[in-house]
Simulated assay, not measured.
Amino acid sequence: MKRDKACVSRIVKDASVILLDIEGTTTSISFVKNELFPYVRREVGQYLQRTWDSEETKEDVAALSRQVEEDVAAGLAGSQALPSTGEREAVIAALVANVEGMMDADRKVGPLKALQGHMWRSAYQEGAVEGHVYDDVVPALEEWRALGKRIYIYSSGSVEAQKLLFRHSCRGDLLHFFSGHFDTSVGAKVNAQSYRDIVSQLECASGEEVLFITDLEKEAFAAAEAGMRVVVSVREGTAPLTQACLDSFRTITSFAELSQEDPDSPISSPKKARVEAEDEGEGGKGQRRGRRSQEWKQEGRQRSGC
């Protein structure tokens, strides 16, 4: 499914909606891996003890218990049956073991994500955690909003977790930039149908109105299958990309490369635009030059952010 790799700034111009992944796209993978997830592992037992009698935690425990029953019945590795006695200490210990098992397996099930989101809310509110965003994210959000773009988030983390990260970010409260949020309740991020459903919910005429930015190529191909425009984010710690992905999508190492004000973009450089047009008329030389440009950009150094 090879797609033409038009100039990234032109891709932004032609889209009415910007749909963003979080981890590896707006936010460092190391923040999620080294701060958010370890916090849950470290605190989940104490959190359940402290909040056991709250309605929210009762709902979390009930949902997790149903998930554990399904996992045990399916024979999933890391799942442990909950004690039949219902004694709080024993139930919490078993729930902690199952939460750790789900996290070890990188499960993205709703009950786990809900509990994590509630725990992170507490951590953010107490100042124990501050959401990371890259330096180049806020200027891009400001520009896209000024251009009238609608900006959405689609992440495997719960909507609540997404909002917490951007509300309590190291760049301040960024929630006002976003028109809405999607999580795995709309479907798995590697399934094309999930992106079709998002297009429908956004009331777009077609997927072509949406630009999706992600660091994972399975998500990129799924979104492209649904008709979306796709740009792949290459940041420190993101997974290596196959040649098929590099041949199919433009890559960026910074949102600044998506700027309409980029002096090197065909949008703002008439001379370069004419050269590119001439190249296209010479049988595809422009595409080869575009590929070389992409390779040069990928060699640039990654900005670390907050």
Rank of each mutant, 00 (worst) to 15 (best):
I18V: 11
F182Y: 15
A73Q: 10
E126A: 13
V32H: 02
L64H: 09
R41H: 11
Q80Y: 15
S269V: 04
G300I: 12
E278W: 13
K13N: 02
T26D: 01
F37G: 00
A205H: 05
T184C: 13
V32Y: 05
S65L: 00
L76F: 15
L64G: 07
Q49T: 13
K149V: 00
D71S: 03
E55M: 11
S304E: 15
L258G: 06
R41S: 11
W144M: 10
L216K: 11
S179I: 08
L211S: 01
R107D: 13
F255A: 01
A140E: 06
V231H: 05
A77M: 04
E69M: 12
S79G: 02
E142M: 06
K113G: 03
A224G: 10
A73C: 04
R3I: 05
A94K: 04
Y124D: 09
V159Y: 05
T214I: 07
A77H: 10
Q201H: 13
L211T: 02
H132W: 04
C306N: 10
L175S: 05
V91Y: 01
E280L: 15
K113H: 10
T26W: 00
G207E: 03
G172Y: 11
L19C: 07
R150G: 11
V210R: 00
A62H: 13
E130D: 09
L82P: 07
G180P: 08
Q116A: 13
A244P: 02
E160M: 12
P38S: 09
G86P: 08
L112F: 02
V61Q: 00
V186Q: 13
T238W: 08
M103V: 03
Q260R: 14
S265K: 01
L175E: 10
P38W: 00
M1Q: 04
E89A: 15
A77L: 12
L258A: 09
E219Q: 07
C245A: 15
A90Q: 14
S206P: 05
G127V: 05
V230P: 06
Y134S: 03
G237C: 04
R229F: 00
D279E: 15
C306Y: 09
A97W: 13
Y134W: 12
G284H: 12
P263I: 05
R41W: 10
S248C: 12
K58F: 06
G101F: 07
A226S: 09
G24A: 02
V91E: 08
E23T: 01
R10F: 05
E55D: 14
G172C: 11
D264I: 09
I92S: 12
C204W: 01
V72P: 02
L20V: 00
E59H: 09
S293H: 13
V96E: 14
G78K: 11
A223I: 07
D53R: 06
S304K: 15
Y47S: 06
C245T: 08
R107W: 14
A223W: 02
V109I: 15
Y152E: 12
I18D: 00
E208F: 03
Q298N: 13
Y47W: 06
F166L: 07
Y152Q: 10
L241M: 01
Q67F: 03
D71W: 03
E225P: 05
S65V: 04
D136T: 04
V190I: 10
